[in-house]
Design a protein around this nucleic acid. Structure first.
Lengths: 229, 229
DNA sequence: ATTACTACTAAACGAGTAC
DNA sequence: TGTACTCGTTTAGTAGTAA
């Protein structure tokens, strides 16, 4: 399937739909369509041929013009665009935000917390994976990333409840599903401990990220954080 | 304002919005955008320059990428597309349908009915114009037009109530706002009388259409009928 | 790393026209 | 009237590369 420039086709479908061709067979001359598109009759004709070839419309040529009906496939395309827009416009938060930070070695305490049975159980249940026992620490270096991280805190998160054992209390944790380096699915965790400032984020994943992505201290890593609907 | 090919820009705006740039300033490299667009880095760069020039985005260039925020104008563009799609997809009926017919001279009874005070009052109130005292009769010649007309009957219409005077009853009439020959705003009226079959439609307008559009019997006339929400 | 210019190639467009 | 072909022109797209 040729993906390139398919937006021409989507927009042509939209114009055809404005003439009712998504519900009923409509008689539309190439000249008329051309005027609606702001293009020439020849271009309109070509577009219709292309849409037909792609199975987006059903076309019957008559001496008085084309009888055009958008196919189910075509309608589905329009609906997909509609859903995308609805999601973007109606949603309260952007669908994803991207953070970049520098890998550094922490105090090794991530492992201590992550492996607590009460946390682990919730990670598996709410994130869908058992985290590798350790966190990847990223230092945010630009104002943009720090500002973005602080915005993220206001977004809805997957909540991991705190608990207490015989010795001390363990605080609640907020998680955001995330994709690390466009490759590995994991999660960004916030407020696990308080002794890192707002310029540090911690990442967990089902695998050992340092090994899997061949990360060394100082490497810049991109994290795409998904926000929740 | 250059209207041509603004689809590219809308589509690019959509992709930027998917990265959250409609709500917050997002850091997006031309390379990254290019991947999302299925185009080259150079093309993405050019698109961003074009969007910036048109005031659809605000762009700040940094060594790590562009900081991009879709402007209010840009968001408005996306919302307009959204509204159009919502209207098309959620609406029960196509927004307009087009009929073509041949002008013919009727029995002159249109005038008789149209000028009845009880009808006229309702025309003015519900259509917003006082009809010229006479109807333009159009004979539908193709199967398509006749089929379309019959579909139209099921669509919601502006209802003109019937009445009775001392002599007889006058039936209810359905009206659809319409544009005749892409020039004059008037209305198509259905079921005014029963002695014309389904292959005939009657048009009223605030002006004398035959004179204004220089119509003679046998001329083919295009009528764009607007359906109601 | 980036962005974006220049120079070139590929694609789209539309005038003319056949049917 | 219609649609849609050919083909010269215009426009969009990209590789290479500078900053």
């Amino acid at each position: 399937m040729s993906e390139k420039h398919e937006w021409r086709h989507i927009f042509t479908l939209l114009k055809l739909a404005e003439m009712g061709a998504h519900r009923r067979t409509a008689k539309i001359s190439t000249e008329y369509l051309a005027a609606k598109l702001g293009a020439s009759q020849q271009t309109a004709s070509r577009y219709l041929i292309e849409l037909d070839n792609r199975g987006l419309i059903k076309r019957t040529i008559t001496p008085e013009g084309c009888l055009i009906k958008i196919t189910d496939v075509g309608v589905k395309e329009l609906k997909r665009l509609y859903s995308t827009l609805r999601f973007l416009i109606e949603a309260e938060y952007p669908p994803s935000i991207t953070l970049e930070g520098i890998v550094f070695t922490g105090l090794g305490e991530g492992s201590y917390y992550i492996t607590k049975e009460q946390y682990k159980k919730q990670f598996i249940e709410r994130l869908g994976f058992e985290p590798y026992p350790g966190t990847l620490n990223l230092k945010l270096t630009t104002d943009y990333d720090i500002k973005t991280r602080s915005e993220l805190e206001a977004y809805p998160a997957i909540e991991i409840e705190g608990f207490r054992n015989e010795n001390r209390t363990f605080g609640a944790v907020k998680c955001y599903p995330a994709t690390i380096e466009n490759k590995v699915k994991g999660a960004l965790i916030l407020a696990l401990r308080s002794h890192y400032d707002a310029s540090v984020i911690e990442i967990i994943a089902p695998i050992f990220l340092r090994k899997h992505l061949k990360l060394k201290d100082g490497r810049k890593v991109k994290v795409e954080v998904l926000t929740l609907p």
